[in-house]
């Protein structure tokens, strides 16, 4: 079996995004960039499936600038076999990403696509669901457990009320939630080995996909700021303030 793992290069998890003063977006100059954390979980899950012998090949694909090669290298160092970079400097919306991924699936014919449920930059939470619609594959989103069997997979999903388990026919799209696994750090020998693994360089045009944006960004603004309040000395003070000043209890 073969698995496709799409990953995105995003602002690092620990960096606080700063809005540009001209309202044109978020300032990413000289900001640390990393693989989307949910994508890391997707790579880890694929590598574990390979280690168990369930799957034989992991193809990682990223859509983004030249530097997204580093993101693919990270995945290769974790244990993926080869990469595809669809290079573009444009902002690519989830719908266009899903269309490009569908084109890759049509070429690669994987049995499963495992990807993060959401990228921590645009917080859209759409790509996996859109890809399954375009492929007419079933979807198992927000997975916290994945069991791959013969021609089908069992997925435990994190939902608002608790957990839900589904069974889907393969091929299928799986999106990862936080509790699916804890991604490994790549070892130095594996980082070295990853440098020799192949990355195919492509352009959106190679797939004949129009990636023109459907949403026009009017502006990006700072959220309303919260001011730090007061430090109270005792629990009694706190209760007094909540009752008599804030009136919330």
């Amino acid at each position: 079996m073969k698995v496709l793992v799409p990953v995105k290069r995003v602002i690092d998890y620990n960096v606080k995004a700063r809005v540009k003063p001209d309202g044109s977006g978020v300032d990413l100059a000289n900001v640390k960039m990393s693989m989307n954390p949910f994508g890391e979980i997707a790579v880890e899950e694929a590598v574990r499936l390979k280690e168990k012998g369930t799957i034989s090949e992991i193809v990682v694909v990223s859509i983004g600038p030249t530097q997204a090669q580093e993101t693919i290298r990270t995945a290769l160092a974790m244990g993926a076999d080869r990469g595809i970079l669809i290079e573009t400097d444009q902002t690519v919306e989830p719908l266009s990403v899903a269309k490009l991924l569908k084109a890759v699936v049509d070429e690669e014919k994987p049995d499963m696509a495992i990807l993060g449920k959401q990228a921590i930059d645009d917080d859209a939470n759409q790509t996996g669901q859109m890809l399954s619609a375009l492929l007419d594959w079933p979807q198992g989103t927000f997975a916290s457990e994945l069991e791959v069997g013969e021609g089908k997979a069992k997925i435990t999903r994190e939902i608002d009320g608790g957990l839900q388990t589904l069974e889907v026919e393969l091929p299928a799209v799986i999106t990862t939630d936080l509790r699916l696994n804890e991604p490994r750090y790549a070892s130095l020998p594996n980082i070295m080995k990853a440098k020799r693994k192949p990355i195919d360089m492509k352009k959106p045009e190679d797939y004949g996909i129009n990636i023109e944006a459907r949403l026009e960004q009017i502006t990006v603004a700072e959220p309303p700021k919260r001011e730090a309040g007061v430090i109270v000395e005792t629990v009694a003070d706190l209760v007094d303030k909540l009752k008599n000043e804030a009136g919330v209890i």
Binding site: E93, L95, A98, N125
Partner: peptide, 21 residues
């Protein structure tokens, strides 16, 4: 989690870019 699960699928089937949250 329910709306986030099904609605993007519908958006893609309609060839529409969803506006999330």
């Amino acid at each position: 989690t329910n709306g986030k699960n099904f609605l993007p699928r519908i958006a893609a089937a309609l060839d529409v870019m969803q506006i999330s949250e």
